[in-house]
Design a protein around this nucleic acid. Structure first.
Lengths: 153, 153
DNA sequence: CCTGCATTATTCATATATGAATAAAATCTT
DNA sequence: AAGATTTTATTCATATATGAATAATGCAGG
C-alpha cells in the first residue's frame, strides 16, 4: 500500500481519526520492519517464511499467494529473493508438473525463529503501551471500519 | 509500506488488535485508492497535487518531499509521472538555480478538486460507520500507539 | 485420442518506495 | 577570490506491489 496518505480537508473529528488510524498503522509497520531488519529480514520475507514454517511442508506458490493475499507474480519475485538469500528452495511437484513448491531451508527455519522473537518483543512493547485501555471499544470500532459496505453491524 | 503483515503468533488480545488495526488501515487505504481511481488519480498523485494546491504557489521538490514525508528521489519520479499526465509542470527558480519547482496546471487543479470530492464522500461514509461510537477512547488508544518509545502518556 | 478450456508459474510493463552515488549550484572559510 | 562544504535534484540499483500476456501442463467432453 502507498505511504502517502495526506491529511487533506480533515475537518470533522472522525476525519482526523481516520488519519490517526492510518498513521498509527504505518508506525506499527515501520517498527515491525525495524524489528526484523537486524535479522536480515523484511516484512514480506518474514511473512512468507512464517507461512511455510507454519504449514510444515512445502507450499505451492499459488497457495502462498493466497495465504499472503497478494498476486502470484509478487510471490514469484519474493521467492526469487528468498532463494537468493538461501532461505527457501523451489521444488518440483511430481504429481502436478505445473506446480512449483517453496520449501524452507534449515537456515530459513532459523531465520524465521529469530524474526518471530523480534516480532514477539515488539508485540510485548505494544501490549504494554495499551495496558489499562478499553480494548473492547477499540475492537468494536475497528470491526465497523473493516466492513466492505461501510455499514456497522 | 508493505502490504504483507501476517497474523503470526497473535495470541494475546492486544496482538489481535494490532493486526486488526493494520488491516483496518489497509482497507481504508484500499477504499481511498478506489475512490480516486475513477478520476485518474492514485493516492500519491492526489497527495502531491493537494499539497501544491494547498500551498497556492509552486513548491520546490525538496519541500514537497518534506510535506509528503518521503525521500527526494521518490518525488523526482512522482513529478515525472504527474508531468507526463499534464497535471504539473516543472519550473526553474531564478533565485536558486539548483531548485526545481512543481507548478499545478489548470487540468491538475481541476483533477485535484475532483479527487477531493471523492475523498470527501469516502470520509462521509466512514464517518457514518462510526456514528454513535466513543471516539474519545479510540483517539486516546491511537495516541498511545503513535509514540516512538511505546510508552503511553 | 485429440481439442479446447482451466490452472500454474513466469515474464514484462508499470507504480511506488528507499538509499547510495552523482552533478550542479550556492555558501562558507580562510 | 579560491577551495571546501552544503544543498539541490537526478540517476541508478533494489524491494515491493499490481495486472496483462505468455508458456507449460492438466483435464474434460466429444
Amino acid at each position: 500500500m502507498n505511504k502517502i496518505f495526506p491529511n487533506i480537508g480533515a475537518e470533522r473529528e472522525t476525519d482526523r481519526l481516520m488519519f490517526s488510524l492510518v498513521h498509527a498503522a504505518h508506525e506499527i509497520e515501520r517498527r515491525y520492519e525495524e524489528a526484523l531488519s537486524p535479522e536480515g529480514l523484511t516484512g514480506p520475507k518474514f511473512a512468507a517464511l512464517s507461512k511455510l514454517v507454519q504449514a510444515g511442508h512445502p507450499l505451492g506458490l499459488g497457495e502462498l499467494a493466497d495465504e499472503l493475499t497478494c498476486v502470484r507474480s509478487n510471490i514469484t519475485q519474493l521467492v526469487d529473493r528468498l532463494e537468493a538469500d538461501g532461505l527457501v528452495v523451489r521444488t518440483v511437484d511430481h504429481a502436478d508438473r505445473r506446480t512449483v513448491r517453496a520449501a524452507v531451508t534449515e537456515i530459513g527455519m532459523q531465520r524465521q525463529i529469530a524474526g518471530a522473537k523480534q516480532v514477539e518483543k515488539l508485540l510485548d512493547a505494544l501490549s504494554t503501551s495499551l495496558s489499562g485501555m478499553d480494548l473492547g471499544a477499540f475492537e468494536r470500532m475497528l470491526s465497523c471500519l473493516q466492513l466492505e459496505q461501510g455499514v456497522c453491524r
